[in-house]
Simulated assay, not measured.
Amino acid sequence: MTKGTELLRQAAAENVPSALYDLAVSYEKGIGTKKNTRKAYELYLRAAIWGDKQSYHEVGRCLFYGIGV
């Protein structure tokens, strides 16, 4: 795990929407952490709930293509 990923996890624990979104991207693509599409979907959903507008699109994309659901 990279230092950046660790910082994103800390911010995501505080429900910072942009951190939730960025951490989801990291999990979906396997950047700085092991690829985990289920975790990515969950983080996109949390980010959307906390108001990250790009995450609305990502949740829909995951549902449409069956990514992590």
Rank of each mutant, 00 (worst) to 15 (best):
D22W: 05
G4M: 10
Y44F: 12
A48Y: 01
T37A: 14
Q10A: 12
A13R: 09
T2P: 08
F64G: 02
R38N: 05
V25Y: 02
L23A: 11
G66L: 00
L23P: 14
R46W: 07
L23D: 14
E6Y: 02
V16M: 11
S55F: 01
R38L: 00
S55A: 13
Q10I: 09
L23W: 09
G51A: 05
E58N: 09
G30Q: 14
G32V: 03
Y44Q: 00
G4S: 10
L7N: 12
T2V: 07
K35W: 12
I31Q: 15
L45Q: 10
E6D: 13
Q10N: 11
L8D: 04
L63W: 01
Y44C: 02
T37Q: 12
A11P: 04
K29E: 10
A40W: 02
Y41D: 06
N36K: 04
C62K: 00
G68E: 01
M1L: 09
K39H: 12
I31P: 15
L45D: 06
L7Q: 10
G4I: 13
M1Q: 15
R9K: 15
D22G: 03
G68L: 00
L20P: 11
T5C: 12
I49L: 03
E42K: 04
T2F: 03
E14P: 14
A11L: 11
L7D: 13
A24V: 04
G4P: 07
E42A: 05
A48W: 01
M1E: 13
R61A: 07
A19T: 15
L63H: 05
R38P: 01
F64L: 08
L43P: 15
K35F: 13
V25T: 08
G68K: 00
A24C: 09
V16Q: 08
E28H: 03
T2H: 11
M1V: 06
T5D: 11
K35L: 15
V25E: 01
S18C: 09
L63M: 13
G68V: 01
G30S: 09
E42S: 10
T33C: 14
F64I: 07
I49H: 02
L23T: 05
T33M: 03
G30A: 08
S55C: 02
D22S: 12
